[in-house]
Design a protein around this nucleic acid. Structure first.
Length: 391
DNA sequence: ACTCCTTTGAAGTGC
DNA sequence: GCACTTCAAAGGAGT
């Protein structure tokens, strides 16, 4: 494992204990990994493909089972993907919030040079100005102390009236093209990839996306005096926001089974579902999945994820730290955008899973089940984070 | 149409 | 503080 002497001084996760859930076989595999690290990827790929194809055509149910397929993958996966996972590492994440200005020249889609307010340039924190009368995302709309706004009306102002108009994110970031209907078709440069389906956008619109909000924060803060800040009830949604009414629509009349009245239920359904920020591994998966799919023709996500899990473990501490860093920034931004959000809010948003086939009661009283796939003793705990990790 | 599978990590809950 | 649970993504497979 590339990780991490989780010493107490390790700010990557000093308090977290690294529990390897690799079994002994995987230890051996680790050695084999080194030995086979130079194997021709094409050979492995073709082997994988062949075996996969054989599996799919075989009448042997043992062979066709997913588990046997995964065994096959496991056999071939040792040291399989040694290419740097950063060969195409995009500058996806909002860089360290305190260093945004320094990084903006690198092509960060969210920022233009000089977009940050002085406070943002010098602070590690996203400037937060919380006004009770503003919508929840207002924290990102800090007002710039910049006393010298541009004399010419910015694009956010109507050329006719000089009054503020709501800037569309497409105007703020190249990543947010306008959809034909005028609704913002938001895609997150981090992996909310172009063409990816957009999460539910309620009529009134949601808060702006991370990048859009940040772009707004950046650009507007230097352009607008407080009274000029336009409404941000744009028709934009963050991919993390899912309209419950659209994505989580219960089919029965009383899915929650707790006597929720129709009105309450409707309200609940319409309440946007703010998703969890992606963790380091999820970010890694999002980035690497297409490569793995292309490399081994596998499409089954479960199999892909197993491969990605192994590749994740094969990453060096430094490599992993990049993703931990990205994830940390995601969480920071998420918390800035949704200060009151809790992961608990989403409990029960998914269909519950069973544990050992037994129904289980979730914290909210719903039937649930745990990660049945993780065998006893292999269940993971939070591993230590890379060296520069900060909560 | 819906759920499961499979991975790791963050965060929540309960003791 | 520990153990456990849930949910983030993904898409094929199974019901």
């Amino acid at each position: 494992m590339p990780q991490l002497d989780g010493g107490g001084g390790d700010d990557l996760g000093a308090n977290d204990e690294l529990i390897s859930f690799k079994d002994e076989g995987e230890q051996e595999e680790k050695t084999a990994e080194n030995v086979s690290s130079e194997r021709d990827l094409d050979d492995v790929k073709s082997s994988l493909v062949n075996e996969t194809e054989n599996n799919s055509s075989s009448s042997d149910s043992e062979v066709t089972s997913l588990s046997s397929l995964l065994m096959t993958i496991a056999q071939h996966d040792s040291g399989l993907f040694k290419a740097s996972p950063y060969a195409t590492y995009p500058l996806l994440m909002i860089p360290d919030l305190g260093n945004l200005a320094n990084l903006s020249h690198l092509g960060n889609p969210y920022l233009s040079p000089g977009a940050l307010s002085p406070s943002a340039r010098t602070s590690n924190k996203v400037p937060v100005v919380q006004h009770g009368h503003l919508p929840p995302f207002s924290p990102l709309l800090s007002y710039s102390p910049d006393p010298f706004p541009p004399r010419t009306p910015p694009p956010h102002l109507s050329p006719d009236t000089g009054l503020p108009r709501t800037p569309h994110p497409a105007e703020l970031s190249p990543y947010y093209p306008l959809s034909p209907g005028g609704m913002g078709h938001m895609t997150h440069p981090l992996g909310w990839l172009p063409g990816q389906s957009v999460y539910g956008i309620p009529a009134g619109g949601f808060r702006p996306s991370y990048p859009a909000a940040l772009a707004m924060n950046s650009s507007m803060s230097s352009r607008f005096s407080p009274h000029m800040v336009p409404s941000l009830q744009t028709s934009v949604s963050h991919p993390a926001i899912v309209s419950t009414a659209i994505k989580q629509e219960p089919r029965d009349g009383n899915r929650h089974g707790c006597g929720v009245s129709m009105g309450d239920r409707e309200k609940e359904e319409k309440k946007p579902h703010v998703k969890k920020p992606l963790n380091a591994f999820m970010l890694y998966m999002k980035e690497q999945r297409p490569k793995v799919v292309a490399e081994c023709t596998l499409k089954e996500s479960a199999a892909i994820n197993q491969i990605l899990g192994r590749r994740w473990h094969s990453l060096s501490r430094e490599e992993q730290s990049k993703y931990y860093d990205m994830a940390r920034k995601e969480r920071q931004l998420h918390s800035q955008l949704y200060p009151g959000w809790s992961a608990r809010d989403n409990y029960g948003k998914r269909k519950k899973r069973k544990r050992d086939g037994r129904p289980e009661t979730a914290p909210d009283g719903q039937i649930t089940h745990t990660q049945s796939a993780a065998p006893e003793g292999k269940r993971h705990r939070t591993p230590p984070r890379p060296e520069n990790y900060e909560k």
